[in-house]
């Protein structure tokens, strides 16, 4: 039972006080890059979850054999191998998805969450808790990614998962012959700023703000 409780604690931490993005502030770079649309964000979240889970598992199995002086390189090797495998498999069996993700799958290698969790957790814990920690951290990262992507796609493109959410009739139409807003047209325009990376940073900042006002333990004294 205590094992189960422990596992549950490891699993839930990344969603609250140990969230990789909002608390540990890791993986911010990709949170800015892949959150313009919801779909790549979802697939990215899934890929990262798989890679964090299995790299944690493998490093935890190897943890007592890895020489201290080359441990970072070994970690990198394991992550890179997994990412290349994922990429090759995607290319062979789900070519369309792999094309959508393009360079981002390769960029999982550079995601700081992976190395962070390997250093902080997998090197000092048994395989199963490490695996849970990896999966949970990947999901904790994914949740933030999806929330950011939700706002960015909705306000930036007026769609969610490519489906139109904001009715076409709301949009302002410019009359090409006069250059003014056409009579009887709507009142709404997509916010171009939301599509650009700085806005993702502002949304992440807002999430951190909300998170810290709910969870008072996280506030700096």
């Amino acid at each position: 039972m205590s094992n189960f409780k422990n596992g549950l604690k490891i699993f839930t931490a990344p969603f609250n006080s140990g969230n990789p993005v909002t608390v540990l502030v890791l993986g911010i770079c990709s949170a800015l890059a892949v959150t313009v649309k919801l779909q790549p964000a979802l697939v990215m979240a899934l890929s990262v979850t798989i890679v964090t889970g299995f790299s944690n598992l493998i490093i935890s199995f190897l943890r007592n054999t890895i020489p201290n002086s080359i441990r970072i390189i070994v970690q990198l090797l394991v992550i890179a191998t997994l990412v290349i495998l994922v990429n090759e498999i995607l290319k062979a069996y789900v070519y369309d998805v792999s094309k959508q993700l393009s360079v981002y799958v390769g960029l999982i290698i550079t995601n700081c969450i992976l190395m962070g969790r390997l250093e902080a957790f997998a090197l000092g814990n048994k395989p199963i808790p490490s695996f849970i920690d990896g999966i949970a951290n990947g999901m904790g990262y994914g949740v933030i990614l999806v929330v950011v992507a939700f706002f960015r796609e909705l306000f930036g493109s007026g769609t969610l998962l490519g489906i139109k959410i904001i009715p076409e009739s709301w949009y302002v139409v410019v009359d090409k012959s006069t250059g003014y807003i056409a009579e009887g047209s709507g009142f709404y325009l997509n916010n171009g700023l939301v599509i650009l990376p700085p806005m993702a940073l502002i949304i992440v900042g807002c999430i951190i703000w909300v998170h810290r006002s709910i969870n008072k333990d996280l506030q700096d004294k």
């Binding site: 007592n64 054999t65 890895i66 020489p67 201290n68 002086s69 080359i70 390189i73 070994v74 090797l77 191998t81 290349i84 495998l85």
Partner: peptide
């Protein structure tokens, strides 16, 4: 596990395993 020989052998072995796998 922190001796030089072990480190070198370890890195060679792990790289070969990964190379074969890939």
């Amino acid at each position: 596990i922190n001796s030089n020989i072990y480190t070198i052998v370890y890195s060679i072995v792990i790289v070969i395993i990964v190379a074969v796998l890939l």
